[in-house]
Amino acid sequence: MTKLRNSEVIPVAELASKHLQSDISHFRAFSSSFTNDYVAKFNQSIEELRPQVNPPELSLKIFELKKKYHSTLHEIRTKLTAIDDMCLLYKNRLVVPRGQFRIYEVRREVRKENIKGVYSGLEATFMAIRKNMLKLESVGFNNLLIEELDDLRKQLLSISKELDGLVAQQKELFASNQEKISQLQSQVSFINKYGKLVFRNADPQRREVYTMAHAINEVRSQQRAMLKSE
């Protein structure tokens, strides 16, 4: 479970519980260890750990800030595309080399989520626009475009700082509960181990849901979808 992040322990355990309860009759036929009491205790261990490492209020704040963070990056990306389009409209008469706008470089920093790189890269974009405004106004370059992008980069920096602070709080909670986290991971491993044995020959496709790779991919896909949802 080396690839499993601390923040993924609870959702991965919930997924293991969901699969176990769905396939409980198969597990019982394979081993008498999987009783109703075992399932109840496993679910109880999840609920006991949740408030200790992922308090609802803290979790909600982190989630909302992550959504704002990704939304702001998306808005910056959209405006960079608009600038690029305006450059293309003006390409036959453009006196200013497109490279001066640093669009490629800023997009790269946006993809890397390098906030400092985005911040400094946009400054170069602003300088190129201001310096050549008279030549570029006819295709839509204006001070409002600069102001909107400047507000977005300041917002991104502010969100990033606040998010870093909350994530640091959560890391402290993870650090102080490592023993319990490890115990829950061990329970998940136990369920996955038997799940792979139960379905090894009977249903190879079903067997895959009891691999950690499958669990991590599913949890991360769900998290990405939630961050992108309105």
Rank of each mutant, 00 (worst) to 15 (best):
T2R: 14
T2P: 00
K3F: 02
R5E: 15
N6T: 04
N6Q: 13
S7W: 05
V9F: 07
V9H: 04
I10G: 10
A13C: 06
A13H: 07
L15K: 10
K18T: 14
I24A: 09
F27K: 06
S31M: 09
S31V: 13
S32R: 14
T35S: 15
D37I: 15
Y38S: 09
A40H: 11
A40L: 11
F42G: 06
N43Y: 08
E48C: 01
L49V: 04
L49A: 03
L49H: 03
Q52L: 15
V53Y: 13
K66T: 07
K68H: 10
H70K: 15
H70S: 10
H74F: 06
I76C: 07
I76E: 04
L80K: 07
I83F: 11
D84C: 03
D85G: 09
C87D: 11
C87S: 09
L88V: 13
L89Y: 13
Y90R: 05
K91M: 10
R93H: 09
P97I: 04
P97K: 10
G99L: 05
Q100C: 01
R102I: 00
R107C: 05
E109G: 00
V110Q: 02
K112E: 14
K116L: 12
L122S: 05
L122E: 03
L122Q: 00
A124E: 14
T125S: 10
F126E: 13
F126N: 09
A128Y: 04
K131Q: 11
K135T: 07
L136Y: 02
E137V: 10
E137C: 03
E137L: 05
G140Y: 08
G140A: 11
F141A: 08
L144C: 00
L144G: 00
L145S: 03
D150W: 03
Q155A: 06
S158R: 04
L163K: 02
L166W: 02
Q170N: 03
Q170C: 01
K171S: 11
E172V: 03
L173H: 03
F174G: 11
S176K: 15
N177R: 12
Q178S: 06
K180F: 06
S182Y: 02
Q183P: 01
L184Y: 00
S189T: 14
Y194E: 12
K196W: 02
R200G: 01
N201G: 08
N201V: 09
D203V: 01
P204V: 07
R207E: 12
R207G: 01
V209H: 00
Y210W: 06
T211A: 04
H214E: 14
I216M: 10
N217P: 01
V219M: 05
Q222Y: 01
A225V: 02
M226W: 03
L227M: 13
